[in-house]
Design a binder for these strands. Structure first.
Length: 472
RNA sequence: GGAACAGUAGCUCAAAGGAAGAGCGUUGGCCUGUUAAGUCAAUGGUUACGUGUUCGAGUCACGUCUGUUCCGCCA
């Protein structure tokens, strides 16, 4: 037939390498050059990546191709589109490769000598400074796929259990979320602030007619939907304006916050454990190629650690018992242990890493070191709070059963000198058809760091925001 | 917010106050089934910035900026 446009099948590297197109068929692949080597045997090896899998796809370009002079000059980072036959590879490292019949160079690298992303290990710090190019590296590519796998698994986990994903607001007009310093959202002219009679900034002139901030937690909002749809969760960006300079804090991060009605602390802990197991299993099943890389180059133990989580039950322990264990440990801690004090990193690390050796759920903390919304236990000294501590990363989940009894809640507000007015709609939930309910927050980036073994949280989010740093 | 450490070639790092170097990359050869490191050569620098001490500063002092690590706050 004449005049028929030949429709070429376009395959990703992943599809190509898994044998989706039979040997002998003709397909097109697109990607960026990772390595290129010319052979005097009259052809070039061009290995390209397109993000679909860890492995590169090898394209063989014969010197009979009309643009072979250009092809021979390809360097790391160039983008190409290649069409040709699927053939069995004669070399090591891949089962199939492409014998190109056509190879279009889409984009050159302007100055190969200074192209920052060489096919060799770079310091994470350097990659961070090149956050626009680092997704082309093995490590960030692999991290991105694992991150995506975790995110999809989180949604799948909840969807399979009839949870509704609630899109809680990013902008909040209440400054009473109680989880930390907040970023102000304002359209007021900083050079010329409107003032009221008392000389204070007049926020009634601001965009929302009152003070507004970026959310530090979707929990308070999501509780309203919990007390109607029973099983809900949020999964979105969260902002903390704290001056935290550590490898596990971000100013902007993603958080997963399930909230379940008619559930107590025990069920809450069970849910947290089930979710962690589910998403770790997903990574093991779906991203073996990337995890293999992390095990090889980043953290030898990362795969066995995930297997541990999937296969073994989490340890559960009361705060009070944990204090006893710490006291009896004969370890010399920098901060002394005493019932009533908040656990320091060194204590959490000892419990999770040395004493238990796998994730541990600590429960029932003294009420004075926990948030106002946590449910008071019958002993009236502790609240139904829980933290999941993971070896190596520390607190990965924090949660609690919420105080659903209005009188008790109001007492708590009074004790902490918080105003009932500020929490009027939150109190309404306790006035109208209140039920026991529980929930927790999973720091998503902490989870990604834990899964991959990448030690700095700034390297498991595309564009990290931290104090004094918001490049890109 | 506190403490410690660091900044030298595109990258990874040397250089005990006395001539700024190596490996990788890149470019050009040689080799040829290679795929982060075969081989020969070439290329590559305002030593973060500023001030000072010194005959002489990458090196010492002070300040600034940036980054890392640990702690605190938390997820």
């Amino acid at each position: 037939m004449t005049g028929v446009i030949k429709k070429m099948t376009v395959l990703s590297a992943s599809e190509f390498l898994s044998g989706k197109a039979p040997v002998g068929s003709e397909v097109t692949v697109n990607g960026w050059v990772r390595t290129s080597k010319n052979s005097k045997g009259g052809f070039s090896f061009i290995n390209i990546h397109d993000g679909s899998c860890f492995a590169t796809l090898q394209v063989i370009a014969d010197d009979k191709l009309s643009n072979y002079d250009d092809i021979a000059k390809l360097t790391t980072g160039c983008s190409i589109s290649a069409t040709g036959k699927v053939v069995e590879s004669q070399g090591k490292g891949q089962s199939f490769e492409m014998q190109a019949s056509e190879l279009n160079i889409l984009g050159w690298v302007e100055d190969p000598a200074t192209y920052p992303m060489q096919p060799k290990p770079h310091k994470m710090e350097f990659l961070r400074e090149n956050a626009h190019l680092r997704p082309r590296t093995n490590i960030i590519g692999a991290m991105t796929r694992v991150r995506n796998c975790l995110a999809q698994a989180i949604h799948r986990f909840h969807y399979e259990r009839d949870f509704n994903w609630i899109h809680t607001p990013i902008v909040t007009a209440s400054d009473c979320e109680g989880a930390g310093e907040m970023f102000r959202v304002s359209t007021l002219d900083l050079e010329n602030l409107p003032r009221n009679e008392q000389g204070k900034v007049d926020f009634s002139k601001d965009f929302f007619g009152k003070e507004a901030f970026l959310t530090v937690s979707g929990q308070l909002n999501v509780e309203t939907y919990c007390l109607a749809l029973s099983k809900v969760y949020t999964f979105g960006p969260t902002f903390r304006a704290e001056n935290s300079n550590t490898s596990r804090h971000l100013s902007e991060f993603w958080m997963v916050e399930p909230e379940v009605a008619f559930a107590d602390l025990k069920q809450n802990a069970d849910l947290a454990e089930a979710m962690l197991k589910y998403i770790c299993k997903a990574v093991l099943n779906e991203r073996g190629d990337d995890m293999e890389f992390f095990a090889q180059r980043v953290d030898k133990t990362c795969i066995s650690r995930l297997e541990q989580i999937v296969e073994h039950d989490f340890e559960r322990m009361d705060y009070t018992d944990a204090i006893e264990i710490l006291k009896k440990s004969n370890k010399s801690f920098e901060f002394p242990v005493e019932w009533g004090v908040d656990l320091q990193s060194e204590h959490e690390r000892f419990l999770a890493e040395e004493h238990i050796g796998r994730p541990i759920i600590l429960m029932n903390y003294p009420k004075d070191i926990k948030a106002f919304y946590m449910r008071l236990n019958d002993d009236e000294k502790t609240v139904a709070a829980m933290d999941v501590l993971a070896p190596g990363i520390g607190e990965i989940i924090g949660g609690s059963q919420r105080e659903e009894r209005l009188e008790v809640f109001d007492q708590r507000l009074d004790q902490m000198e918080l105003s009932r007015e500020d929490y009027w709609w939150y109190r309404d939930l306790r006035r109208y058809g209140t039920v026991p309910h529980s929930g927790f927050g999973l720091g998503f980036e902490r989870m990604v760091a834990y899964a991959t073994g990448i030690s700095n949280i700034r390297d498991v989010i595309p564009f990290p925001r931290t104090p004094k740093s918001a490049e890109f």
